[in-house]
């Protein structure tokens, strides 16, 4: 929005104050976000050895090599499998749980707290607990599954493929579905009751009411949740890194893990930056859609 030149001194004084108040934010932003962001793109044009930080300019060579490496494509596929798998579970579980919690449940607020807890607990804690649950010798999961006759022999949850990917997806769903629950629950509480009463009078059963009223009302918020969670799941590092470290071999290695490995285990900072930039470019699609969606909503208010 452009200001006309006719701004009064008072108006200009206010604008100046506004700029002073935002100045610390801008300063910090430039130092720790904007500068590193451009720096990452710049670094991706170099070959840099991490321990010495000595580098030489290689232009777009990193990118050229990157697309030829099968490791990149495998990691990208892993990222997509992980994101789509865990996101689907999060949404299904989350919406179902929100519907349950929306009902008149005994000790509803206690139930809500218990559901919410995994989301806020540290990933480190979550991973430690799950690794103990997954333990092949003494883990309770193997014990339970054997005792009900589901399996005959203890499963290797994290050390074999495709078990590792499935386990990671499950733990991801467990950790992050509460986000969906809370967001959907908040929206459910704003659906006007008369809508349901009107549908009842018109003869709609519970299932028809869900599909004709609840779901359309949730559509908007679900789109936002899916976008947001897709972005966050796509860039997830801690959970996967701590559970499997990308293994066995590289069967659960997603793009963020690849960037980390390249930079701090293989000591190739330039190449790692190139991976990071490509990864961000892929995410940009979702980010732009999300930002535009939010902007539209902001303006319509």
């Amino acid at each position: 929005m452009s200001r006309p030149n006719t701004a009064t001194p008072l108006e200009r004084r206010y604008a100046m104050l506004g700029v002073i108040l935002i100045a610390p934010t801008i300063l910090v932003f430039c130092a720790v976000i904007v500068y590193p962001l451009f720096s990452a793109i710049y670094l991706s044009l170099f070959q840099i050895f991490t321990p010495t930080l000595q580098g030489s300019f290689v232009g777009l060579e990193n990118y050229q090599r990157l697309f030829q490496r099968s490791e990149f494509w495998i990691s990208l596929r892993n990222t997509l499998v992980w994101t789509i798998g865990t996101l689907t579970l999060q949404i299904l579980l989350g919406v179902a749980m929100a519907l349950v919690l929306h009902q008149n449940l005994w000790f509803r607020s206690l139930a809500r707290s218990l559901i919410l807890f995994p989301y806020f607990v540290s990933t480190v804690v979550a991973v430690l607990v799950w690794r103990w649950l997954f333990n092949d010798l003494y883990g309770i999961l193997n014990h339970l599954m054997i005792s009900v006759g589901l399996i005959d022999w203890p499963l290797d949850f994290l050390g074999s493929s495709p078990n590792a990917m499935i386990s990671v997806i499950l733990v991801g769903a467990w950790k992050y579905f509460p986000f969906v629950v809370i967001a959907v629950l908040a929206r459910l509480q704003t659906i006007p009751e008369p809508l349901y009463e009107a549908a009842k009078i018109d003869g709609a059963g519970p299932i028809a009411r869900f599909f004709d009223i609840t779901l359309p009302q949730l559509r908007e918020v679900l789109v936002v949740i899916i976008l947001l969670r897709a972005i966050w799941d796509f860039k997830e590092f801690d959970l996967i890194f701590l559970l499997t470290g990308g293994g066995p071999l590289i069967t659960t290695q997603t793009l963020p893990l690849l960037v980390y490995k390249e930079a701090f285990a293989l000591n190739q900072m330039g190449m790692a930056s190139a991976y990071a930039v490509v990864m961000m470019a892929i995410m940009l699609v979702f980010m732009v859609v999300y930002v535009l969606k939010t902007r539209n909503k902001d303006e319509s208010r």
């Binding site: 801008i26 720790v32 590193p36 990452a40 930080l53 590092f237 790692a272 990071a276 990864m279």
Partner: peptide, 24 residues
Amino acid sequence: SLAFLVLFTYLLPSVVLIIPLYLM
């Protein structure tokens, strides 16, 4: 524009920033 830059950075992956930040 600033408000939406904020929203944008809120979605930025840490692994992109970590290498330059480490160097810095």
